[in-house]
Nucleic acid binder design. Structure first.
Lengths: 213, 213
DNA sequence: ATTTGAAATTTAACAGTGTTAAGTTTCCTG
DNA sequence: CAGGAAACTTAACACTGTTAAATTTCAAAT
């Protein structure tokens, strides 16, 4: 009985249409501009039909971000071939910043907004797997740097170091996304600031005597 | 005719009551939880009365943040007595992080949320004055560090350096405020991460040969 | 062929939001 | 006592996300 399969196929098709319509609005205009009624109009369904496919608005839009999250992890893994762990950390920073500028609205929701949702299917989302989990990839790189004696001797906690590096990258991006239009500050370009902060961080983390790039 | 003065006094009294009621809600529950109707109820006025005193909700709540902004600048100026410019930078970082944790909702609005308002009375807000403008204080400290030859020779742009330092501090705080409850990551404590990132940054910025603290 | 019944969707409605326009009170001035 | 600005209230608008109930759709079972 391939009939249930067809039903599920149709169900998924509608689900996909919702996600696509939502994505278009979300990318172009941000979270608040996405409304159930606008999505519904775009896909020619009634607004409440969406609730059959998604629990609520936040769950729906966070699903879009999950897709982007994968694309970030993918970008990280393209760096895996770089042999030098320290240089890899710099490149991770660069990729992270690029992600932020090219997916501003996703970035805002993923990293600048507290989630009301409690996730449970972590295992299914590739949590901890370097290929799907950007943070795991970063931690693994830090571990390699520690193991190869590239970092200062006091730096023994990979998570702490990883979170400091992440914070540095996040700081530049987040400040840019939130305050770039604020003329209170004479802003320098994002890439310039990002290069400085990443190099400074790696430079400050690396053990003395290690060749400088 | 002191009658106009009395009127203005009353006017300011109502204005203040609005701000106080709004602050209580804002501090305890954040931006979205502050509604015109809840403020109105608290001060026993009709909701629309608020519009006589404030253009709109965002303007009202951003005025609260301006007050906090002053208190941040004040905290910075308490550091001015520290003679060593590099140590002063570390202390600025510490004070900034402390501000973030003790004023989370203000911090979110001030530094993590794009403003729809275009300010104009910058001059009146002490823009550029170290005593009232935290960023100006930071830039001034960086300038001193550069002038005293404490920073690497390539670092000649005070704004760039200041923004990198700010980004570092902001990164830790912002990530904490947005994602501390996300169990995806094994979070290290805010202060631990903040100490590491600030020391690493200063360490990476300072000219070789300068004493390490 | 017709009932059954679950799945998918729509209609109607609720409770809330910020905000504007119009009407009303208050109270000093001429 | 009339005029009029200032301060405020009432009523309403145009939205929002979301729930409950009614309806359609359509394959399976009688």
């Amino acid at each position: 009985m391939g009939i249930n399969e067809r039903r599920e196929r149709e169900r998924k098709a509608v689900r996909k249409k919702i996600l696509e319509a939502a994505r278009e609005l979300f990318v172009a205009e941000g979270y608040d501009a996405v409304t159930m009624r606008r999505i519904a109009e775009a896909i020619e369904y009634s607004p409440t039909a969406i609730y059959f496919h998604f629990k609520d608005k936040e769950t729906l839009i966070r699903e879009l971000c999950k897709e982007d999250s994968s694309s970030l992890a993918k970008a990280f893994n393209a760096i895996a071939k770089e042999p030098d762990a320290l240089e890899r950390l710099r490149k991770i920073g660069r990729a992270y910043v690029e992600f932020g500028v090219s997916h501003p609205n996703s970035y805002r929701l993923m990293f600048m907004t507290q989630s009301k949702i409690k996730e449970d299917d972590y295992a299914e989302m590739g949590h901890g797997k370097q290929e799907e989990d950007g943070y795991a990839f970063l931690v693994a790189t830090v571990i390699e740097a520690i193991d190869k004696g590239l970092l200062r001797k006091v730096l023994v906690d990979p998570h702490l170091v990883a979170q400091a590096i992440w914070s540095a990258g996040h700081g530049v991006v987040a400040l840019h996304l939130a305050k770039r239009d604020d003329p209170w500050v004479e802003w320098r370009s994002l890439t310039e600031t990002a290069e400085l902060i990443m190099h400074t961080m790696i430079n400050g983390l690396k053990r003395e005597g290690i060749a400088h790039d």
